[in-house]
Amino acid sequence: MIYQDSRTLLAVRDLRATVNGTEILKGIDLSVRSGEVHAIMGPNGSGKSTFAKVLAGHPAYAVSGGEVSFDGGNLFELEPETRSRRGMFLGFQYPIEIPGVANSQFLRLAYNTLQAERGKEELDPLEFDDFVREKMKLLEMNPDFLDRSVNEGFSGGEKKRNEILQMALLEPKLAILDETDSGLDIDALRIVANGVNHLATRDNAIILVTHYQRLLNYIKPDFVHVMDAGRIVKTGGSELALELEARGYDWVSAEFIASGTPKAEVGA
C-alpha cells in the first residue's frame, strides 16, 4: 500500500555488479518505501536473483558501481549478517539444504541472534518451540519439519514455506522474496500468499521477484518493474503484470531500446 507518511527503506542508484568479472547488473535504479509491495518481473537470466543476492551481500558478486542506501545507511558497509539484523530478508529462490543442523536449532539460533541484537529476551528451546509452532500454523506447516535437518529432503514447496516461516520469525523491514511462488501448487500458493499478506504492515516493505503473474493475484503489488539484461526497463502499476502475462516480455525490451535511454549500452 502507498502511504503519505511512508519513509524510504531502500534507495538503489545505478547499481552495477559482476560475477567472475562479467557484468550482470548494468545500472539499476529502484526506490522502495515503507508499506509498499513491489514486483520485479522479467525473463529468465535477466538478473533478478543476482539483484536480490547483491542486496543480501552474497560474496560471489562484486559491486562495480552505484549506491544503495538501506534504512538510511550505506548498505555496502554492512556485512550480510548485519543487513539481516537491521531488517533485510532474502527468501531464496533455491534454499540451501544443511544436513546435520536441525531446523528447530537453526530457526532458534537465527531468532535469538536477532532478539539479542534488539536487546530483547532470548527464548529457550521449550519457549521457542511453542512460539514457532504458532507461526507454523499460519503457513499450515507440519511441526515435523522442526526436527528435520534444514531443508534436507524438503520438497520445493516445503522449502519455500520454510523461507516464509523464517520471514515470520525475523519480521524484516524489507523482505525480498525470490520466486517464492515457483514450485508451489495452487493450495500452497494461496497459503504462502496469505502468510505474506499477514506479515505485510505499513512499516515494512516487500519485493516479490517472480516471472509469473499468478502470485500477484494473491498479493497485489503497488509497483511492477520489468528487468531485462541487468536493468529495470519498465515500471508500472499492477495492471502491467496482466499486460505482461498477455503479451510476454519482448515488447518491453523493444520499447526500451527504441527509447534510447542514456544509460543503455544496447547490444551488450
Binding site: 543480501a56 551481500g57 552474497h58 560474496p59 560471489a60 556485512e79 550480510p80 549478517e81 543487513r83 539481516s84 539484523r85 530478508f89 532474502l90 531464496f92 534454499p95 540451501i96 544443511i98 544436513p99 546435520g100 543442523v101 537453526f106 539460533l109 537465527a110 541472534t113 536477532l114 541484537e117 535437518s149 523464517q166 525475523l170
Partner: peptide, 26 residues
Amino acid sequence: DAEEVFYLRSRGLSDAAARMLLTYAF
C-alpha cells in the same frame, strides 16, 4: 560450503557462528 555459510549469515548469524554451526553439524 560457501553457500551454506552465506545462507546462515543471511539469517543474522555471524561468519564465525555460521562456520561453527556447520562444523558442528559435520
